[in-house]
Design a protein around this nucleic acid. Structure first.
Lengths: 209, 209
DNA sequence: TGCCATCTGGCACAGACTGACGCATGCGGA
DNA sequence: TCCGCATGCGTCAGTCTGTGCCAGATGGCA
């Protein structure tokens, strides 16, 4: 009976092997986050992270391609959530507004799942390590491409326009995120506020042509 | 008399030591560019570059902090030219237009000094190596800050607005540069055209709010 | 000519990352 | 229940980037 229940509930269907993998992966992520915030990204070696979880360095690199990836993984997760929400937006909605709304909803979801602190930590790590931010810019290219894909044909938007919209939105997002990190706030509402006021400045930008 | 002349003409004032330094630096830059375009950035080792100029690897790292820096140095040079021209713009000119005009003038200058090919090579290298582009984004932060500095108070522009203007312009610049690289053109006029048509799309971006 | 600052080469080493090999463990079928 | 296979993991050895250190070579200058 108990076994049957375990077999039927899909998430628990996975065997011991799979469970262990998830375990070590999670442990590596946690250990890395802790060490990075405690000692800084550069000062932390991969060996330290692996030792903290009691696996070999080689195993670490089987879970994460690079040391940067283990730091950026939370960011990637949030981007995934954001994309899901963006794809649910009605095609009648203007692209830039769809992006703005999806951001707000993403942060709301993070807060409801008590992931806001974790996200704040990741963002802080990013703005404290410019090199890491550069890698992030690279790694998020796929994400931007997916955003373009989701927005093309939104209310007759051409691909070329969608590309520019995404770039502009990403710029505003970066500016807002930087200001938020500098303010030292860990409240996602403040981040939303920064993004709003930044986006509201856009019309003035055009007047400078 | 001859000595006096040498002392007075500032560029030739430098002695043999300084001249040799410029020589090796130039040689390293040239060898790196050649190897990078021939074999790709990742496939080229620092040892290869150093060997090509017949200096030790250790010496290479005394001229360039990282392998990436030797690849990005031409880009930094162009940014310098751009900034000089931007600072000469009349303060009555709207910021975004000042940026646009400075770009055009920079490319014109590059062409006149027959540096357009070299620049095309650097841009091609950038768009062929996303990782390098990420580092470039990081390294160009100082450049963007300088642009903000130059534009603040331009026609009553606040710093906050200037920051956003620079971000938006940089976005358009990236988009245009990517399209130009994809088109395979080595003509700087085409790049200017791409930038113009991208910037002209900006009003439509705002309509998507 | 001789002294001093600077440049350079070579060495040793840390840290990120990779390929190969063998062992151990979990999984599925007979 | 037992066996064979797939998979994950550790170990080892090695590459490449980047750095500190010291000794020798070279240029500038009195």
């Amino acid at each position: 009976m108990a076994a049957d229940a375990a077999v039927q509930t899909s998430p628990e269907t996975i065997g011991r092997r799979e469970r262990k993998k998830v375990q070590t992966r999670t442990a590596l992520l946690a250990a890395a986050a802790e060490l990075f915030t405690a000692q800084g990204f550069d000062a932390t070696t991969v060996d330290q992270i692996a030792d903290a979880v009691d696996v070999s360095q080689r195993t670490f690199f089987r879970y994460f391609l690079t040391k940067e990836d283990v730091a950026l993984e939370p960011v990637r997760a949030v981007e995934g959530r954001f994309l899901e929400l963006l794809r649910l937006r009605p095609p009648t909605e203007p692209p830039l507004q769809a992006l703005r709304r999806s951001s707000a909803l993403t942060w709301q979801a993070l807060r409801e799942e008590r992931l806001d602190e974790q996200h704040a930590v990741a963002v802080a790590l990013l703005s404290a390590n410019p090199g890491l931010a550069a890698t992030d810019a690279h790694r998020s290219e796929a994400h931007r491409a997916a955003m373009v894909e989701a927005l093309t044909h939104h209310r007759g938007t051409t691909r070329g326009l969608a590309e520019l919209v995404v770039e502009v939105f990403s710029s505003a997002h970066r500016v807002a995120q930087r200001r938020w990190a500098e303010s030292g706030s860990a409240n996602l509402d403040d981040l939303a506020g920064e993004l709003d006021s930044t986006l509201d400045l856009l019309p003035e930008v055009l007047e400078t042509t």
